[in-house]
């Protein structure tokens, strides 16, 4: 509480971190689609000319056309592997949200626990996933599970961090309201803190959607191989081994699309089921 009358400055910012839905006009949408397309076409053209002018062999840098052809030729493999990786990333994200939610709720209930354990959550962020993946294989084996664990480790931090922030970010008036009517801790948590934190959770999940794909692919470099479990990571190492640079770049493009797809999924779920929590009143 402050020493004097609260003024406007004391109110928490209501708009920060709340990216709401912009209902732009169709012209605006058309314009942005156009400009993105123009940049893409220009980029591909430069790439193509670069390869042609220097007459680079395909193994060093294939043209966009060669990449597309290589991807198309392997489309079945590529799509199957993308699905495997997408599934791993989505499961990891869901698990991370679950674990992150529980951790954050525990943190929100005790300042002591938060002080004691939060630094270890930060530690998660600094763990080099490449270094920990071989260890995970020792402990967890060559399983789908290991991929999920690695991806969860990499995407847990933004989620815990955001939910923890969200649970502490209730507006002063709302907190006062709950205190005034003698709300219990559980009531405050369920009716105020959790609904407030959903916006933050979605923000964290958006950040983590890209990380989950990265984590899954990196883990697949170590875990998935051959015939049993083939994700994009396995395809990438295989095609690298076969010196098929064009296919490798196609897989790279696919992994980027996966990140976008997961990002879109998170946004879609947020919009469908949680839009009431992301509104500013």
């Amino acid at each position: 509480m402050r020493s004097s009358d609260r003024t406007d400055n004391d109110r928490l910012p209501e708009t920060s971190n709340k990216p709401g839905l912009n209902h732009r006009g169709w012209q605006d949408a058309l314009f942005s689609t156009l400009s993105v397309t123009v940049v893409a076409v220009f980029g591909l053209l430069v790439w193509h000319l670069f390869v042609r002018i220097f007459d680079l062999p395909k193994i060093l840098l294939p043209t966009p056309g060669q990449v597309a052809a290589a991807g198309w030729q392997r489309r079945e493999e590529l799509l199957m592997a993308s699905w495997v990786t997408f599934y791993a990333a989505a499961v990891s994200l869901a698990v991370a949200i679950l674990i992150g939610g529980v951790l954050s709720i525990i943190f929100s209930q005790s300042r002591m626990l938060r002080r004691a354990f939060f630094p270890y959550v930060i530690f998660l962020q600094t763990v080099p996933i490449v270094a920990i993946a071989p260890l995970l294989i020792i402990w967890s084996g060559y399983e789908f599970r290991t991929t999920v664990i690695a991806a969860v480790i990499i995407c847990l931090f933004p989620i815990v961090n955001n939910i923890t922030t969200g649970l502490q970010s209730c507006r002063t008036e709302h907190r006062d309201l709950f205190r005034l009517y003698g709300a219990s801790r559980l009531q405050t948590l369920v009716r105020l803190q959790i609904p407030t934190s959903i916006t933050y959770l979605l923000l964290g999940a958006r950040i983590s959607s890209g990380l989950a794909v990265i984590g899954a692919i990196v883990a697949e470099f170590f875990v998935s191989n051959g015939s049993v479990y083939v994700g994009l990571g396995a395809l990438m190492t295989r095609w690298q081994g076969l010196s098929q640079t064009d296919a490798l770049i196609a897989a790279l493009g696919m992994s980027t699309l996966l990140g976008l797809a997961l990002f879109g999924l998170v946004n879609g779920i947020g919009w469908l089921f949680f839009s009431r929590y992301t509104r500013v009143d």
């Binding site: 008036e173 309201l177 005034l180 009716r191 609904p195 929590y277 509104r279 009143d281």
Partner: peptide
């Protein structure tokens, strides 16, 4: 208590 802001829960 009636606050300066309506302080309604938006959800």
């Amino acid at each position: 208590f009636v606050f300066q802001q309506p302080a309604l829960l938006p959800w």
